[in-house]
Design a protein around this nucleic acid. Structure first.
Lengths: 104, 104
DNA sequence: TACTAATATAATTATTTACTTATATAATGA
DNA sequence: TCATTATATAAGTAAATAATTATATTAGTA
Protein backbone atom coordinates (compact mmCIF):
# COMPACT_ATOMS: atom_id res chain seq x y z
CA UNK A 1 0.00 0.00 0.00
CA UNK A 2 1.49 3.28 -1.19
CA UNK A 3 1.43 6.27 1.19
CA UNK A 4 -1.15 8.86 0.21
CA UNK A 5 1.56 11.46 -0.18
CA UNK A 6 3.43 9.40 -2.78
CA UNK A 7 0.25 8.46 -4.57
CA UNK A 8 -0.78 12.08 -5.00
CA UNK A 9 2.68 12.90 -6.34
CA UNK A 10 2.34 10.21 -8.98
CA UNK A 11 -1.16 11.35 -9.85
CA UNK A 12 0.09 14.92 -10.17
CA UNK A 13 2.41 13.67 -12.88
CA UNK A 14 -0.57 12.15 -14.66
CA UNK A 15 -2.79 15.21 -14.23
CA UNK A 16 -1.08 17.37 -16.81
CA UNK A 17 -2.29 17.17 -20.39
CA UNK A 18 1.15 17.44 -21.94
CA UNK A 19 2.57 14.69 -19.73
CA UNK A 20 -0.43 12.47 -20.33
CA UNK A 21 0.11 12.88 -24.06
CA UNK A 22 3.77 12.01 -23.68
CA UNK A 23 2.77 8.84 -21.84
CA UNK A 24 0.27 8.04 -24.58
CA UNK A 25 3.07 8.40 -27.12
CA UNK A 26 5.47 6.22 -25.15
CA UNK A 27 2.76 3.61 -24.88
CA UNK A 28 3.08 3.17 -28.64
CA UNK A 29 6.88 2.98 -28.67
CA UNK A 30 9.99 4.46 -27.13
CA UNK A 31 10.89 7.88 -28.46
CA UNK A 32 13.64 10.43 -28.30
CA UNK A 33 13.06 13.99 -27.13
CA UNK A 34 13.03 15.45 -30.61
CA UNK A 35 10.35 12.99 -31.75
CA UNK A 36 8.06 14.13 -28.97
CA UNK A 37 8.81 17.80 -29.57
CA UNK A 38 7.95 17.32 -33.22
CA UNK A 39 4.68 15.54 -32.55
CA UNK A 40 3.47 17.78 -29.74
CA UNK A 41 4.50 20.96 -31.55
CA UNK A 42 6.05 22.64 -28.55
CA UNK A 43 9.53 23.66 -27.43
CA UNK A 44 12.35 21.28 -26.62
CA UNK A 45 12.91 22.56 -23.07
CA UNK A 46 9.24 22.12 -22.33
CA UNK A 47 9.33 18.44 -23.23
CA UNK A 48 12.72 17.93 -21.65
CA UNK A 49 11.45 19.24 -18.32
CA UNK A 50 8.31 17.16 -18.42
CA UNK A 51 10.38 14.08 -19.18
CA UNK A 52 12.65 14.83 -16.27
CA UNK A 53 9.67 14.97 -13.93
CA UNK A 54 8.28 11.73 -15.33
CA UNK A 55 11.68 10.12 -14.88
CA UNK A 56 12.09 11.39 -11.32
CA UNK A 57 8.61 10.12 -10.57
CA UNK A 58 9.56 6.70 -11.87
CA UNK A 59 7.10 6.62 -14.74
CA UNK A 60 9.63 6.57 -17.57
CA UNK A 61 13.17 5.34 -18.17
CA UNK A 62 15.85 6.92 -20.31
CA UNK A 63 18.56 5.39 -22.47
CA UNK A 64 21.08 7.36 -24.39
CA UNK A 65 22.02 6.05 -27.81
CA UNK A 66 24.75 8.23 -29.20
CA UNK A 67 23.31 11.74 -29.48
CA UNK A 68 19.73 10.73 -28.83
CA UNK A 69 18.12 10.08 -25.48
CA UNK A 70 15.30 7.60 -25.75
CA UNK A 71 12.49 7.51 -23.24
CA UNK A 72 10.21 4.57 -22.58
CA UNK A 73 7.39 3.71 -20.20
CA UNK A 74 8.33 2.23 -16.85
CA UNK A 75 5.01 1.14 -15.41
CA UNK A 76 5.17 -2.64 -15.28
CA UNK A 77 5.62 -2.46 -11.52
CA UNK A 78 2.67 -0.10 -11.07
CA UNK A 79 -0.41 -2.18 -11.88
CA UNK A 80 -2.71 0.31 -10.16
CA UNK A 81 -1.99 2.71 -13.04
CA UNK A 82 -2.87 0.25 -15.77
CA UNK A 83 -6.54 1.22 -15.77
CA UNK A 84 -5.67 4.82 -16.51
CA UNK A 85 -2.96 4.08 -19.03
CA UNK A 86 -5.39 1.84 -20.88
CA UNK A 87 -7.66 4.86 -21.29
CA UNK A 88 -5.04 6.86 -23.17
CA UNK A 89 -6.04 7.27 -26.81
CA UNK A 90 -4.01 5.85 -29.66
CA UNK A 91 -1.35 8.20 -30.95
CA UNK A 92 -0.70 6.24 -34.16
CA UNK A 93 -2.12 8.98 -36.38
CA UNK A 94 -0.06 11.74 -34.81
CA UNK A 95 3.04 9.59 -34.97
CA UNK A 96 2.51 8.84 -38.65
CA UNK A 97 1.72 12.45 -39.48
CA UNK A 98 5.05 13.54 -38.03
CA UNK A 99 7.05 10.72 -39.58
CA UNK A 100 7.89 12.70 -42.72
CA UNK A 101 9.92 15.39 -40.96
CA UNK A 102 11.77 13.17 -38.51
CA UNK A 103 14.70 14.59 -36.57
CA UNK A 104 17.10 11.69 -37.18
CA UNK B 1 -12.44 6.18 -24.80
CA UNK B 2 -12.28 9.39 -22.79
CA UNK B 3 -10.74 12.47 -24.41
CA UNK B 4 -7.30 13.29 -23.02
CA UNK B 5 -8.55 16.67 -21.88
CA UNK B 6 -11.28 15.15 -19.73
CA UNK B 7 -8.99 12.46 -18.39
CA UNK B 8 -6.45 15.00 -17.20
CA UNK B 9 -9.22 16.98 -15.50
CA UNK B 10 -10.29 13.90 -13.59
CA UNK B 11 -6.71 13.07 -12.68
CA UNK B 12 -6.22 16.63 -11.47
CA UNK B 13 -8.99 15.98 -9.00
CA UNK B 14 -7.14 12.90 -7.80
CA UNK B 15 -3.77 14.61 -7.63
CA UNK B 16 -4.45 16.62 -4.50
CA UNK B 17 -3.69 15.05 -1.13
CA UNK B 18 -6.72 16.52 0.61
CA UNK B 19 -9.09 15.33 -2.10
CA UNK B 20 -7.48 11.90 -2.17
CA UNK B 21 -8.01 11.64 1.56
CA UNK B 22 -11.64 12.66 1.18
CA UNK B 23 -12.09 9.91 -1.39
CA UNK B 24 -10.41 7.44 0.95
CA UNK B 25 -12.89 8.46 3.66
CA UNK B 26 -15.89 8.15 1.36
CA UNK B 27 -14.67 4.72 0.35
CA UNK B 28 -15.39 3.63 3.92
CA UNK B 29 -18.84 5.20 4.10
CA UNK B 30 -20.84 8.25 3.12
CA UNK B 31 -20.14 11.30 5.24
CA UNK B 32 -21.40 14.80 5.83
CA UNK B 33 -19.17 17.83 5.48
CA UNK B 34 -18.71 18.28 9.21
CA UNK B 35 -17.53 14.68 9.60
CA UNK B 36 -14.80 15.25 7.04
CA UNK B 37 -13.83 18.61 8.52
CA UNK B 38 -13.53 16.96 11.92
CA UNK B 39 -11.38 14.08 10.69
CA UNK B 40 -9.12 16.08 8.40
CA UNK B 41 -8.69 18.88 10.95
CA UNK B 42 -9.12 21.71 8.50
CA UNK B 43 -11.66 24.43 7.83
CA UNK B 44 -15.21 23.88 6.65
CA UNK B 45 -14.89 26.06 3.51
CA UNK B 46 -11.78 24.18 2.52
CA UNK B 47 -13.59 20.85 2.55
CA UNK B 48 -16.74 22.33 1.05
CA UNK B 49 -14.79 23.64 -1.92
CA UNK B 50 -12.97 20.38 -2.49
CA UNK B 51 -16.27 18.52 -2.36
CA UNK B 52 -17.76 20.87 -4.90
CA UNK B 53 -14.90 20.17 -7.29
CA UNK B 54 -15.25 16.44 -6.76
CA UNK B 55 -18.97 16.70 -7.40
CA UNK B 56 -18.55 18.81 -10.53
CA UNK B 57 -15.98 16.30 -11.73
CA UNK B 58 -18.47 13.50 -11.22
CA UNK B 59 -16.50 11.64 -8.57
CA UNK B 60 -18.95 12.11 -5.70
CA UNK B 61 -22.69 12.52 -5.21
CA UNK B 62 -24.47 14.61 -2.63
CA UNK B 63 -27.71 14.04 -0.73
CA UNK B 64 -29.18 16.46 1.72
CA UNK B 65 -30.82 14.96 4.79
CA UNK B 66 -32.34 17.76 6.83
CA UNK B 67 -29.48 20.04 7.78
CA UNK B 68 -26.71 17.69 6.73
CA UNK B 69 -25.38 17.18 3.25
CA UNK B 70 -24.02 13.70 2.79
CA UNK B 71 -21.42 12.91 0.19
CA UNK B 72 -20.69 9.50 -1.27
CA UNK B 73 -18.45 8.02 -3.93
CA UNK B 74 -19.75 7.95 -7.48
CA UNK B 75 -17.22 5.82 -9.30
CA UNK B 76 -19.07 2.68 -10.30
CA UNK B 77 -19.17 3.91 -13.87
CA UNK B 78 -15.43 4.69 -13.92
CA UNK B 79 -13.70 1.31 -13.78
CA UNK B 80 -10.43 2.79 -15.00
CA UNK B 81 -10.14 4.52 -11.62
CA UNK B 82 -10.63 1.37 -9.58
CA UNK B 83 -6.94 0.53 -9.55
CA UNK B 84 -6.11 3.85 -7.95
CA UNK B 85 -9.01 3.87 -5.53
CA UNK B 86 -7.99 0.40 -4.38
CA UNK B 87 -4.62 1.88 -3.39
CA UNK B 88 -6.15 4.34 -0.95
CA UNK B 89 -5.30 3.38 2.61
CA UNK B 90 -7.91 2.43 5.15
CA UNK B 91 -9.29 5.37 7.11
CA UNK B 92 -10.96 3.26 9.80
CA UNK B 93 -8.60 4.45 12.52
CA UNK B 94 -9.06 8.13 11.75
CA UNK B 95 -12.82 7.67 11.57
CA UNK B 96 -12.92 5.94 14.94
CA UNK B 97 -10.62 8.48 16.54
CA UNK B 98 -12.97 11.28 15.57
CA UNK B 99 -16.14 9.42 16.51
CA UNK B 100 -16.18 10.80 20.06
CA UNK B 101 -16.67 14.44 19.06
CA UNK B 102 -19.17 13.89 16.27
CA UNK B 103 -21.01 16.89 14.84
CA UNK B 104 -24.48 15.33 14.90
C1' DT C 1 39.71 21.62 -33.59
C1' DA C 2 35.60 23.87 -35.09
C1' DC C 3 30.77 23.19 -36.20
C1' DT C 4 26.34 21.25 -35.75
C1' DA C 5 22.59 18.55 -33.69
C1' DA C 6 20.34 16.77 -29.55
C1' DT C 7 19.42 17.42 -24.95
C1' DA C 8 19.60 19.57 -20.30
C1' DT C 9 19.47 23.28 -17.10
C1' DA C 10 18.53 28.00 -15.34
C1' DA C 11 15.91 32.05 -14.86
C1' DT C 12 11.73 34.47 -15.68
C1' DT C 13 6.79 35.05 -16.21
C1' DA C 14 1.99 34.18 -16.23
C1' DT C 15 -1.43 31.21 -14.66
C1' DT C 16 -3.43 28.02 -11.61
C1' DT C 17 -4.50 26.42 -7.26
C1' DA C 18 -5.17 25.46 -2.19
C1' DC C 19 -6.24 27.66 1.65
C1' DT C 20 -7.98 31.34 4.63
C1' DT C 21 -11.23 34.85 6.23
C1' DA C 22 -15.56 36.81 5.87
C1' DT C 23 -20.20 36.42 4.68
C1' DA C 24 -24.43 34.28 2.79
C1' DT C 25 -27.87 30.59 2.55
C1' DA C 26 -30.57 26.75 4.41
C1' DA C 27 -32.67 23.98 7.91
C1' DT C 28 -33.99 23.10 12.74
C1' DG C 29 -35.89 24.13 17.12
C1' DA C 30 -37.07 27.16 21.13
C1' DT D 1 -39.54 35.04 14.98
C1' DC D 2 -34.98 34.49 16.69
C1' DA D 3 -30.99 31.75 17.59
C1' DT D 4 -28.20 27.98 16.29
C1' DT D 5 -26.06 24.54 13.38
C1' DA D 6 -24.59 22.97 8.86
C1' DT D 7 -23.15 24.19 4.50
C1' DA D 8 -22.03 27.19 0.49
C1' DT D 9 -20.01 31.03 -1.78
C1' DA D 10 -16.94 35.05 -2.47
C1' DA D 11 -12.77 37.48 -2.17
C1' DG D 12 -8.02 37.67 -1.13
C1' DT D 13 -3.29 35.64 -0.63
C1' DA D 14 0.61 32.75 -0.97
C1' DA D 15 2.58 28.93 -3.16
C1' DA D 16 2.98 25.78 -6.99
C1' DT D 17 3.33 25.04 -11.81
C1' DA D 18 3.72 25.09 -17.05
C1' DA D 19 5.75 27.33 -20.54
C1' DT D 20 9.13 30.51 -22.50
C1' DT D 21 13.74 32.40 -23.42
C1' DA D 22 18.50 32.04 -22.89
C1' DT D 23 22.41 29.30 -22.14
C1' DA D 24 25.10 25.11 -21.08
C1' DT D 25 26.39 20.33 -21.97
C1' DT D 26 27.17 16.25 -24.73
C1' DA D 27 27.96 13.65 -28.90
C1' DG D 28 28.95 13.25 -33.71
C1' DT D 29 31.40 14.83 -37.74
C1' DA D 30 33.95 17.64 -41.20
Amino acid sequence: MIPLEALSETLKLLSDKTRLTILALLKEKEMCVCDIVEILQTTQPNISQHLRRLKTGGLVMETRRSQWVYYSLNVEDKPYLHGILAQLPSMKDQINAAKSQNCN
